[in-house]
């Protein structure tokens, strides 16, 4: 899905890095947004609606619409259309509204 030949643009892609999506190892370009790396790997379902659990992809790609919220390195509600990819990142489908790490730590009695 990556564009290699374009009449106007050249893409200065960063170096290749590996990351995981729901435990599956994938490859992306360092510094590109996570949604672009997922899309290039053929992943289009990024989240699910809260009550009807309908699949959601991205919609606006500039951080406005909240259609692409995912769990990234344990942090919930990350807008993957604007969050940049780095090596070893753990990207997961989020279920429900997500719990902040701080909140989860408090509930399990872990000191913050």
């Amino acid at each position: 899905m990556r564009i290699t030949d374009h009449p106007i643009l050249t893409f200065g892609h960063g170096r290749k890095v590996r990351f995981t999506f729901d435990g599956r190892e994938l490859e992306g370009m360092e510094g590109e947004v996570i949604a672009a790396a997922l899309h290039a790997a053929g992943v289009r379902v990024l989240s699910h609606s809260h009550s009807l659990h309908r699949p959601r992809g991205f919609y606006c790609a500039i951080g406005n619409c909240s259609s692409c919220l995912m769990l990234v390195d344990g942090e919930p509600n990350v807008r993957v259309c604007v969050e940049k990819l780095s090596a070893g990142m753990r990207v997961e489908t989020q279920s429900g509204k997500g719990r902040l790490r701080m909140q989860a730590d408090r509930e399990t009695g872990k000191p913050s």
């Binding site: 949604a35 899309h39 606006c60 790609a61 619409c65």
Partner: peptide
């Protein structure tokens, strides 16, 4: 997808 999103994906990120 929104038209702007399609532009961002292909013209900024280089992904179809």
């Amino acid at each position: 997808y929104g038209a702007g999103a399609v532009q961002t994906l292909m013209n900024v990120h280089g992904v179809r």
